[in-house]
Computed example of a mutant assay.
Amino acid sequence: MKPTNVVAGAHGMTDQAWKKHANPWSVWTRFAAIPAFELAVWSREWIGWWSLAGVALVAVWLWLNVHLFSPVEPTSWAARGIYGEQLHVDGRTPAAHRLVLRLLIVAGLLGFAFIAWGLIALEIWPLLLGTTLTVLAQLWRIDRYGLLYEQHQSDTR
């Protein structure tokens, strides 16, 4: 089973859940979880083990997020991106998109490595660099998924 299917299954991603996750409020509030997670981990210096409560809240938010918002049609940039992500998870990604998506995943993982370094060492520059790389890679992935969705729509007409 592909890692994307495992993650989607863990989030309970039914067709209805994908439509809810496509809501721009769902997309943008997930981005807000990045600095919230970073602050929760960094706060271990101030509040010790209580910082795990913040980490747990962010994890619960990320799981709940895909189910909380009302379902939408693919009329916005964010929604088209999530509809395209669903196509990707379902294995309907043409070869022309696969390489770029893999490279963007690598860029996001590199960003995550910098975030981890910054949070472990409590160094701000790798944290900021990693956050920037991760966010830019994710935005580009959403854009690429939107192109995938639009291509799929034109191919099925």
Rank of each mutant, 00 (worst) to 15 (best):
M1C: 09
K2L: 04
P3T: 12
P3A: 00
P3K: 06
N5C: 02
V7W: 10
V7Y: 02
A8F: 07
G12C: 02
M13P: 07
M13N: 00
T14M: 08
D15G: 04
D15M: 01
W18D: 05
W18T: 04
K19E: 13
K20P: 03
A22G: 05
N23I: 09
N23W: 02
P24L: 10
W25L: 14
W28E: 12
T29C: 10
T29G: 05
T29D: 11
R30G: 14
F31V: 11
F31Q: 08
A33T: 14
A33M: 13
I34W: 07
P35A: 08
A36Y: 06
F37E: 09
F37P: 08
E38V: 04
L39H: 09
L39G: 00
V41H: 11
W42R: 09
R44V: 03
R44N: 07
R44E: 08
R44K: 13
E45R: 14
W46A: 11
W46V: 12
W46E: 04
I47S: 06
G48E: 12
W49V: 14
W50Y: 14
W50K: 14
G54T: 11
V55E: 02
L57Y: 05
A59H: 01
V60S: 04
V60R: 00
W61F: 15
L62I: 10
L64E: 04
L64I: 05
L64Q: 13
L64H: 10
N65R: 05
N65W: 01
H67D: 05
L68M: 14
L68I: 13
L68S: 01
S70H: 07
S70W: 08
P71G: 12
V72T: 14
V72F: 01
E73L: 13
P74K: 02
S76C: 03
A79R: 13
R80Q: 15
G81F: 03
G81S: 10
E85Y: 03
H88W: 03
H88V: 06
V89D: 01
G91D: 00
R92A: 14
T93W: 03
T93C: 07
P94I: 04
A96E: 07
H97N: 03
R98P: 08
R98W: 05
L99P: 01
V100I: 13
V100L: 15
L101F: 00
L103T: 05
L104N: 00
L104D: 06
V106D: 02
A107T: 13
A107K: 10
A107N: 03
G108W: 01
L109C: 10
L110P: 06
G111P: 04
F112H: 02
A113N: 07
F114E: 13
F114N: 02
I115Q: 15
I115H: 10
I115N: 14
A116L: 15
A116T: 14
L119M: 09
I120V: 15
A121F: 12
E123H: 11
I124G: 03
L127W: 11
L128P: 02
L128I: 11
L129N: 10
G130I: 13
T132A: 15
T134Q: 13
V135T: 12
V135Q: 04
A137G: 01
A137F: 06
L139H: 01
R144P: 02
R144A: 12
R144E: 15
Y145Q: 08
G146S: 00
L148P: 00
L148E: 12
Q151Y: 04
Q151E: 15
H152R: 12
H152C: 00
Q153R: 11
Q153S: 06
Q153E: 15
D155R: 00
T156P: 09
T156F: 02
T156G: 10
T156N: 14
